[in-house]
């Protein structure tokens, strides 16, 4: 059962920001992740600041320059079903449609999907792990079949989001508001590795909220998202491949390949991208790119399969171009 907390319903963004600064205050958008963490006592939740009624943060709009603005409170279902998204960013529609379950997609928001806490069973369970201020990343010696093969040290979580790898591949920019003002950055730069900061997965400061995600125009961009999981619904990616390419005739002019499920952040496989640019898609080009993507992988005892899986999934994604 949920522990006790105070509840604040913000009616304006400013009210939300005013209330989020204090210790133990957490933002509630769709609520699916924060309530889960509160119930499992992953961290202390003293105050829930609900922003769910801030209509200004909701919605998908296209600008005259072709870019797309997705408000942070837009639900995952709304993204998956948006004709604008389906038409220009099919990979994003696919990624959103692959999130969790229909009910959670109806409730969960884009901001929440990007900022959700990791699903590592040690972090979510009653283990005082390094990420929670303990001494040990239990995954190193423990049950680590779902953990990171890239960028892990000293904490081997994988980033749980489906939309994040796809949005990074699409070159999205994230907008953040805090009491001190607003800022924005490429989404790729938003996420932080555990060796930079063990306690968090992104640059959101206490008291800040994500307000929107901006996608550049997708003219000429092909995108796809391929998620491999153990069961067909309500499961996080063992590995996922977000791919965005721009073709120039029959050659690949631009490519972004981002992996989910393999690292504590959406993992941009730049070596793979380099192996693709200027090439014509072919099985051997695809195989080279796939090998390059996982070249630096350092599997733990139980997750070496992820190296094979990432290669296989990349291969499939590229061959489907």
């Amino acid at each position: 059962m949920l522990p006790n907390f105070a509840y604040i319903r913000a009616r304006t963004k400013q009210e939300a920001l005013n209330n989020l600064g204090s210790e133990g205050a957490h933002v509630h958008a769709g609520g699916t992740d924060i309530l889960g963490c509160a119930r499992a006592e992953v961290f202390e939740v003293e105050k829930i600041v609900s922003i769910s009624r801030l209509e200004e943060l909701r919605g998908i709009t296209r600008s005259s320059d072709g870019s797309l603005r997705i408000g942070a409170l837009t639900t995952i279902s709304e993204i998956a079903q948006s004709p604008l998204v389906q038409e220009s960013y099919p990979g994003l529609a696919q990624a959103a449609g692959d999130v969790a379950s229909p009910q959670l997609r109806n409730q969960g928001t884009l901001g929440g999907n990007l900022c959700q806490r990791p699903r590592c069973w040690y972090f979510r369970g009653d283990f005082h792990c390094a990420k929670k201020g303990g001494d040990l990343c239990y995954a190193v010696e423990g049950e680590n079949r779902y953990h990171a093969i890239l960028g892990g040290d000293p904490c081997y979580i994988v980033h749980p989001s489906d939309t994040a790898p796809m949005l990074v591949a699409l070159g999205a920019e994230i907008h953040i508001s805090g009491a001190a003002g607003s800022r924005s950055m490429p989404l790729q730069d938003f996420f932080v590795l555990p060796d930079q900061d063990l306690s968090r997965e992104n640059l959101l400061e206490p008291g800040e909220i994500v307000t929107e995600v901006l996608l550049p125009g997708a003219s000429g961009i092909k995108s796809s998202y391929r998620k491999i999981r153990e069961r067909g619904a309500w499961d996080f990616a063992l590995v996922s491949v977000a791919l965005a390419v721009r073709m120039n005739g029959s050659t690949i002019a631009e490519a972004r390949l981002v992996l989910g499920g393999v690292a504590p952040v959406p993992w941009r496989a730049e070596a793979a991208e380099r192996a693709l640019i200027g090439k014509q898609p072919s099985p051997s080009v695809a195989a080279d790119a796939a090998a390059a993507a996982v070249a630096g992988a350092q599997p733990l005892e139980q997750n070496a399969y992820k190296v094979l899986l990432a290669k296989g999934a990349i291969l499939e994604s590229l061959l489907a171009l």
């Binding site: 509630h28 609520g31 309530l35 499992a40 829930i48 609900s50 009910q103 959670l104 109806n106 309500w234």
Partner: peptide, 27 residues
């Protein structure tokens, strides 16, 4: 499950299925 994983608590909120166990009543 009381943790948004099974769906037995599904209700429609404004015609849309949601897990009522993961919905604060105030919301």
């Amino acid at each position: 499950c009381d943790r948004g994983e099974c769906g037995a608590c599904t209700v429609l909120v404004d015609d849309v299925p949601r897990y009522s166990c993961m919905t604060l009543t105030l919301e």
